[in-house]
């Protein structure tokens, strides 16, 4: 083959599946690296806070902390077992580590090191997991579709699934202040700012009713609360009145608030950026059964399968996480 033949340049642009895809809508209000800035702020007030990463500082907004506090930042290399073993060791000496990697590597590769080194001794080790659920098009190696299912079984661990930059900013100091290990489902880069439009503050362990509604109640966490709020607005145009309850703390779960909202004759729907197995839906379902309620709940979640690679908007549509898909599902249920 001649040089000319291989140099003829490519065909038109097709959709991309970037690693760091943003899920912010075009023109949406966002905050840059809210986790990194919140950690810096918390560290100004508490000199025990340290930051660690496993070769993903730039990709988990930990680089903001590293720049502000180079002597309190520890680059552990791409070695996740070392990352979390060492975080436990640092906590044993009285420090408060925030250790970041992608959710898949924290949940899958380092589980044993988190479970026995941090959770069993109930150390204040804070796991910061990037790309939770379906937030990358890279396929199963990077899609943490079952991270909450894995982590919910770990005793002592607090699990936080924030919706937006407000949640993250307010959660970080509370995670540092709380005893025991925590897992934060990180949203990084330009993160949507959504909850400032509501009378809302993040309180660790608490669910909050963001809006009332007579026909349907959404129970949601993570970025799906943003979609739930958008879907509620869209459903209003169909004369469907939707309440939204945000449950950013998945464990321990605020069953009291959620059950009070569920125990009505409204259609109940859970919305989560996670597998239908072992996440918010099953958390709500077990609370309902434990309380002896016979309430039906419609799960809006990722299917129990390995998901495709591709562009994130394509995949959110394919697996039902878009506002349009939520609206269609609710209307079908109400028929």
């Amino acid at each position: 083959m001649s040089a000319a033949a291989v140099s003829t340049g490519p065909a038109p642009k097709l959709k991309t599946s970037a690693m760091i895809a943003s899920f912010a809508d075009p023109g949406q209000k966002t905050a840059s690296a809210p986790f990194g800035h919140a950690l810096v702020k918390a560290a100004q007030e508490n000199d025990k806070i340290v930051g660690l990463t496993a070769d993903l500082g730039k990709y988990t907004d930990m680089h903001i902390f590293a720049q502000a506090y180079p002597e309190r930042f520890f680059q552990m290399g791409m070695a996740e077992q070392l990352l979390f073993g060492a975080a436990a060791g640092m906590a044993e000496t009285g420090l408060i580590p925030f250790a970041s990697t992608y959710s898949v590597f924290a949940a899958r590769r380092a589980y044993d090191f988190l479970c026995l080194d941090s959770a069993e001794p109930n150390l204040n080790v804070n796991i910061v997991g990037g790309l939770p659920g379906l937030t990358t098009g890279y396929g199963p190696s990077h899609q943490a579709t079952e991270d909450m299912a894995i982590f919910r079984g770990m005793p002592n661990l607090t699990i936080v699934d924030p919706c937006d930059s407000i949640d993250i900013e307010q959660a970080v100091p509370q995670l540092a202040a709380s005893d025991g290990p925590t897992y934060l489902r990180l949203l990084r880069g330009n993160v949507p700012t959504v909850l400032d439009e509501y009378d809302y503050t993040f309180e660790l362990g608490k669910a909050k009713v963001l809006r009332g509604g007579n026909d349907v109640v959404f129970i949601s966490s993570g970025l799906m609360t943003m979609r739930a709020l958008q879907a509620a607005k869209a459903l209003a145009a169909h004369n469907v009145d939707v309440a939204v309850v945000h449950t950013p703390t998945i464990k321990p779960f605020d069953a009291a608030t959620v059950l009070a909202e569920i125990n009505t004759d409204r259609l109940a729907v859970t919305l989560e950026n996670h597998s239908v197995i072992g996440g918010l839906f099953e958390t709500v379902a077990s609370a309902i059964v434990t309380a002896g309620l016979g309430k039906r709940v419609v799960p809006l979640a990722l299917p129990d399968q390995f998901l495709d690679a591709g562009a994130l908007p394509t995949l959110h549509d394919r697996y039902g996480l878009t506002v349009q898909k939520i609206v269609a599902k609710v209307l079908a249920e109400l028929k």
Partner: peptide, 15 residues
């Protein structure tokens, strides 16, 4: 030219 695109056999991360 389908590298990394939707429904391609050539995803960004090899599988």
């Amino acid at each position: 030219e389908t590298y990394g695109s939707d429904d391609s056999r050539l995803p960004m991360s090899g599988m």
